[in-house]
C-alpha cells in the first residue's frame, strides 16, 4: 500500500491485537460472556455503517442502509434455510444481490441531492419492510426462523474451517468471524479512499458540476459507490440474520437506518474509522445504560445531544490521533 507510515502500521497492529487477543482475555477475566454478542453486533453493524459513510463521501446523506441490510438478511436466510446453500456462498450472494438492487434503484434516485436523497432513502427502508411483509417467499410477518448455523469450508478435501455447530464456543466463533470481516471491510474502505477513486469522490463531494466539467463520469462513479455501499449493507444484514438465526421484516427498520447514519455522524464524517468508533460508542453505550431501566433512553439521548452540541464534527475531531484521517496526509 502506498504511503503507509510505520506509525500507522503499529497502530493497526495494536488494533488487531486488541480485538483478537485483548477482548477475549478481558471477557474471560470478567466473565461477561454476553459482551461477545454485543461486540459481534457492533462489528457487523459497523460493516453496514461503513457503507453509509461511503455514500457520505460522495456527498449523499444515506438513510436507506436498513433496506439493503434487510435485503441481504433475507437473501442469505432464504438461500441457507430453504435452498440449503452454504452460508459462505450465501453471504457473498447477499452482498451482490443488494448491490444489484442498489444499482437499479440508484439509477433514478442518485440524481437527487441533499435532503431529497435523504428522504427518499428513508422511504426506501419503509418500502423494503412492506415488501418483505407482502411477498410469499419472505414468510410475511412471521419471518424466517431457525436458520442453520454456518457450515464448514473445505477446499480440495482439506478442511479450512469446521462447521459452527461442532464448535465448543459459537459466540467466540461468531465474534472472530464478524471482526475479521469488519477489518477487511475497513481495509477495503481505507484503500478505496486513498485511491484515485477516492480522490474523485472527494471532488464530487465538493462540487459535482465542477468534477463533471473536468471529465469525471459522475453518474457512473456514484452508481459504483452506491453499489459498494449497499454491498456492505447486504453483508452486514446477512451476518446479522445468521447470528440471530432469524429474520423478520422488523429486523431492520427506519430506526436502524437512522442509527447507521448516526454512527457515521458521531464518529466523524472526515475519518475512515469514524463509523466504527461511532457504532461502538452508540451500541455499547446503549447496552451499558441498560442498568438504568426506564431512564435508559433519556440518559442516552441527553448524552447524544451533548456530544453533538459540543463536538458537532464528530468524536474523532478531538484528534485522538492522525490514523485513519480520510483526507490527504
Amino acid at each position: 500500500m502506498n504511503g503507509v507510515t510505520s506509525k500507522q502500521l503499529i497502530g493497526f497492529g495494536i488494533f488487531l491485537l486488541a480485538i483478537f487477543v485483548g477482548v477475549p482475555i478481558v471477557i474471560a477475566a470478567t466473565g461477561r460472556w454476553d459482551f461477545y454478542f454485543t461486540l459481534t453486533s457492533v462489528a457487523l453493524l459497523s460493516i453496514a455503517s461503513a457503507g453509509v459513510w461511503l455514500t457520505f463521501y460522495i456527498g449523499r446523506i444515506n438513510i436507506g442502509q436498513g433496506a439493503f441490510a434487510l435485503i441481504g438478511a433475507y437473501v442469505s436466510a432464504i438461500l441457507v434455510a430453504k435452498a440449503g446453500v452454504s452460508f459462505w456462498i450465501s453471504l457473498l450472494v447477499a452482498g451482490l444481490f443488494a448491490a444489484v438492487v442498489s444499482v437499479l434503484i440508484g439509477l433514478p434516485i442518485l440524481r437527487l441531492r441533499g435532503v431529497y436523497f435523504a428522504m427518499i432513502t428513508l422511504v426506501l427502508t419503509q418500502v423494503v419492510t412492506l415488501v418483505a411483509l407482502a411477498l410469499p417467499i419472505t414468510n410475511g410477518a412471521k419471518g424466517i426462523t431457525s436458520i442453520p448455523l454456518p457450515g464448514g469450508i473445505s477446499l480440495l478435501g482439506l478442511q479450512i474451517l469446521p462447521p459452527f455447530d461442532s464448535m465448543a464456543d459459537t459466540k467466540l466463533a461468531f465474534y472472530i468471524m464478524a471482526s475479521i470481516l469488519m477489518v477487511l471491510t475497513y481495509l477495503a474502505l481505507w484503500r478505496l479512499v486513498n485511491s484515485r477513486l477516492g480522490h474523485i469522490c472527494r471532488s464530487m463531494q465538493q462540487n459535482e458540476e465542477l468534477a463533471s466539467s473536468i471529465g469525471v463520469n459522475i453518474a457512473y462513479i456514484r452508481i459504483i459507490i452506491f453499489a459498494i455501499s449497499s454491498f456492505f449493507g447486504g453483508i452486514g444484514g446477512a451476518l446479522f440474520g445468521s447470528i440471530s438465526q432469524s429474520v423478520y421484516p422488523s429486523s431492520f427498520q427506519v430506526t436502524d437506518s437512522v442509527n447507521f447514519m448516526l454512527n457515521c455522524f458521531l464518529g466523524g464524517l472526515g475519518y475512515v474509522f469514524g463509523p466504527m468508533l461511532g457504532t461502538l460508542t452508540l451500541y455499547f453505550g446503549w447496552d451499558l445504560l441498560f442498568t438504568l431501566g426506564k431512564y435508559q433512553l433519556l440518559v442516552y439521548s441527553v448524552l447524544l445531544i451533548l456530544v453533538i452540541r459540543f463536538l458537532p464534527n464528530g468524536l474523532l475531531s478531538l484528534r485522538l490521533g492522525k490514523l485513519g484521517k480520510g483526507g490527504g496526509k
Partner: peptide, 13 residues
C-alpha cells in the same frame, strides 16, 4: 447535515 444528528437525538429525547 450535523443538524440531522441533533434532530434525531431530540426525537429520542
Amino acid at each position: 447535515e450535523s443538524t440531522m444528528l441533533l434532530a434525531a437525538g431530540i426525537a429520542f429525547l
